[in-house]
């Protein structure tokens, strides 16, 4: 009989003998993976939402007077000193007037009595479309407001701040649920394996005496942890996927969820979550063996 056949038989025997606690551990691991993956999924989607919202984000710096070519260069230099940006556009009073007239369309005639330079010149600063820039917008705005000749800086301040705090909160929740995942997988698996070891103390002692190798005794316990990791994380991810699809179908009509594209993890993230869970469960199993299975 080959080594692996014997080991797999041992694993089967262990699982049969302690199926109650094994099932509880499996459920706990699945639930932990589900909770962590759920919050992580929301977090990653919020990040991509942030990118999309950033597309429309422009900081408008109103100036006291039209900047000459040299001043324009100086201002560009000052702005890029603070942070790299995607684009900087200077809008003269005349250009602003034309834009405004264009926006009024048929009501353009209300501007007939207005001077062509009644709108202040401005600089349109378009930050890079990522969350870091988004989070920095407030600081960036304060910096731009201090530039000489600036009247006012305008941007969607309120939603940017709310979004920033929401993503901050989410990252904390993701961290907490990640910690929960680590603790539950390691400790629950370790506890179950410990119960199995204590319940089979007489058999393990006998196995040593009849010449079982360390691998013969230890590998079944490691495989138990591994199996808990594979099954627990797969069930957790599958449950999240089902939940995700259910939400998509249920809320497919016009509503808040349709404001942005809500997507599931890419395969590489799914595999990473499963891989890390397997690693943690095996680690839990290994640590218990190290403590309670002295060979």
């Amino acid at each position: 009989m080959s080594f692996w056949v014997t080991v797999i038989r041992q694993v089967g025997r262990n699982l049969r003998q302690t199926w109650g606690s094994q099932l509880m551990t499996l459920l706990t691991v699945s639930l932990s993976v589900l909770i962590f993956a759920f919050f992580y999924l929301i977090y990653t989607n919020m990040l991509s939402l942030g990118d999309k919202l950033g597309d429309d984000l422009t900081l408008i710096v109103y100036l006291e007077e039209e900047p000459g070519p040299e001043l324009q260069q100086q201002l560009i230099k000052k702005i890029t000193t603070f942070d790299e940006v995607e684009d900087i556009r200077f809008v003269s009073s005349a250009m602003a007037y034309e834009r405004f007239a264009g926006q009024l369309g048929q009501n353009e005639d209300v501007l007939d009595d207005m001077p062509k330079d009644f709108l202040p010149p401005s600089i349109e600063v378009i930050p890079f479309k990522n969350l870091r820039s988004l989070n920095q917008v407030k600081l960036f705005s304060a910096y731009l407001a201090k530039l000489p000749g600036t009247l006012k800086v305008q941007y969607g301040q309120e939603w940017v701040e709310r979004f920033y705090y929401f993503t901050k909160l989410l990252s904390i929740v993701v961290l907490l649920s990640g910690t929960l995942l680590i603790l539950t997988t390691i400790f629950m698996v370790a506890y179950t394996i410990r119960l199995t070891i204590l319940g089979r103390q007489a058999e393990l002692e006998l196995l040593k005496l009849v010449g079982a190798t360390n691998n013969y005794i230890r590998i079944p316990f490691l495989l138990e942890g591994l199996l808990q990791g594979i099954l627990g994380s797969s069930i957790g991810i599958a449950a999240l996927y089902t939940l995700f699809h259910w939400i998509r179908i249920r809320f497919s009509g016009p509503g808040l969820l349709n404001l942005f594209e809500f997507s599931f993890f890419p395969p590489v993230v799914t595999i990473t979550i499963i891989g890390v869970s397997i690693l943690l469960c095996t680690l839990g199993s290994y640590s218990t063996m190290h403590k309670f299975l002295r060979i």
């Binding site: 009989m1 080959s2 080594f3 196995l207 009849v210 010449g211 079982a212 190798t213």
Partner: peptide
């Protein structure tokens, strides 16, 4: 048991 450990 004594034979299983030597993979008979």
């Amino acid at each position: 048991i004594s034979m299983e450990v030597s993979y008979k």
